[in-house]
Design a protein around this nucleic acid. Structure first.
Lengths: 209, 209
DNA sequence: GCATTGACTGACCGGTCGGTCAATTAGTAA
DNA sequence: TTACTAATTGACCGACCGGTCAGTCAATGC
C-alpha cells in the first residue's frame, strides 16, 4: 500500500488490480466489495481502476474471464493428453480433477458465485470440457470397459458434482464427527463410483465383450 | 403494494416481511438487497422492518432460521419414519431428497449463499441429519445389505453432493447437448450409486479374482 | 526542443445505503 | 373514558456508494 510503483507499467498495474479483485470478489462476492476497497488492496487509486476496466462490472468480468481461461486451458490439456480408453483413465481423471479443486479452493468459490448469479459467459467452454470427458467415457463404454446403460454426460456430471460440492461445503463440514479427510472421501467415492460403473453382467455368463 | 393492512396484525406483518426477504435474499444474495427494496416488496415501511427485526443482518438471520427449521423438520421426519434396514430404503431416501430439492430450488440457493458466507448457524442440525442418515447406512452395512468398506458418512455425503450440486448448476446446464432431464440424471446416478454400494463378493461365490 | 498520448491522481458529484427518531395510530386493559 | 403499549409512519442523518472530470506527470515520436 505504501509502496508506489517504481515506473509506470500499465500491464503490471492491471495484473495487480486483477489479483486483488480476484481475491476480494472470491472472498466476499461481487456486491459486497467496494471500489474503494479494491483500490486500497491493489495499491492504486479508484480512478485508475475505472481507467483500466471501465466499471465495477467490467472488472468483475475481466476477473472471471482470466480465471476461467486458466482453468479451461489446464483442464483441456489434461483431457486431451490421455489416449487409450481405460477404466483406470476415468479413475485418474476423477483424481486429477479432485486434486485440482483441492489446490484451487478459490476457483470453487468463484464458480459458485457465478452459478448463483446465473452467469453464462463460460457456458460454451464448460460444455466443451464436459463433452470432451463424456467422449472418453463413451469410448470406454464402446470398448466394454464401462457399463453402457448410463448417459456418458451424466457420468461426468456425477463426479464433477461429487467433487465440487465436497469442496464447496468442506469449510462447514470439516470437523464433523464421522467425516474423513479429503483423501478418505475421495477413496470412498472412487470405490462406489468405479464399481458402480463396472460392466453389468447382462447374461448368465461373464460378460466378455 | 397498494393494499394496506386492514387491521394491525404484527404476526402477519412479520410473516410478510420474512416472505419477501426470503425471495429477495435467495434471488440476489444478502449484500445485493437493500432495505428499501425489502420494504417495497413486503408492502411496509423500512422503519417497520427495523422495528421488527432490528438490523438487516437480524432479518437475514431470521430468514435463514425459519427456512432451515422447515427443512430440518421435514428431513428429520422422513429419516425417522423409515425402520427396517434395506437397500431399497437408501434408494428411496436418495429419491426423496432429490425430489425435495427439485421442488424447493430456493432452498438450494439459500444453502449455497450460506456456504459461501461461511455461515455455521445450522451446522449442528445439519450434522444431526447426516448422522441420522449415516446410522441407517451403517445398519444396512451390518445386515450385509451394503458394502462395509466405505465410511457411512461419506455414503450420505456423496449422494447429498451429487443431488444438491445438480440443482445448483442446473440453470446453466439445462440445455446442454447430451445432458438429460432431472429424472434421467437421477436414474443414472442411482444405477451407479446403488450398484457401487452393493456388497462386494469377498467370499467363495462367483468371485472375479 | 516540442507535441502527443495514455497512465495516474485527487477532488468532487448525485444518489443510495443502513439506521434513527419523534410523532401518529390502533388495539387493549383499567 | 383514560392510560398504556406496541405497531406504524415519514422525515431525516452521516457514511458510503460507483462514477466523473479536469488536470498532472511520465514516456514516446518527431
Amino acid at each position: 500500500m505504501n509502496e508506489s510503483i517504481a515506473t509506470r507499467d500499465p500491464d503490471l498495474t492491471q495484473a495487480r488490480i486483477l489479483d486483488a479483485a480476484f481475491d476480494l470478489f472470491v472472498d466476499k462476492g461481487f456486491a459486497a466489495v467496494s471500489m474503494r476497497e479494491l483500490a486500497e488492496r491493489s495499491g492504486v487509486t479508484k480512478s485508475l481502476i475505472h481507467h483500466h476496466f471501465g466499471t465495477k462490472e467490467g472488472l468483475w468480468d475481466a476477473v472471471k474471464e482470466a480465471a476461467f481461461a486458466r482453468y479451461y486451458e489446464g483442464q483441456k490439456d489434461e483431457l486431451e493428453g490421455a489416449d487409450s480408453p481405460d477404466p483406470e483413465l476415468l479413475k485418474n481423471g476423477v483424481t486429477r480433477y479432485f486434486r485440482f479443486l483441492q489446490e484451487n479452493p478459490q476457483v470453487v468459490r468463484l464458480f459458485t458465485w457465478m452459478h448463483l448469479e446465473g452467469d453464462t459467459t463460460c457456458n460454451e467452454m464448460d460444455a466443451e470440457l464436459v463433452e470432451l470427458g463424456a467422449r472418453r467415457v463413451r469410448e470406454a463404454q464402446d470398448a466394454g470397459l464401462l457399463r453402457s446403460d448410463v448417459n456418458p454426460t451424466h457420468v461426468v456430471t456425477v463426479f464433477i458434482n461429487a467433487c465440487s460440492q465436497w469442496f464447496e461445503v468442506r469449510p462447514q463440514h470439516k470437523n464433523w464427527e464421522g467425516i474423513g479427510s479429503d483423501d478418505e472421501y475421495l477413496d470412498d467415492f472412487l470405490k462406489i463410483f468405479m464399481d458402480g460403473l463396472a460392466p453389468r453382467a447382462t447374461g448368465p455368463e461373464t460378460d466378455g465383450n
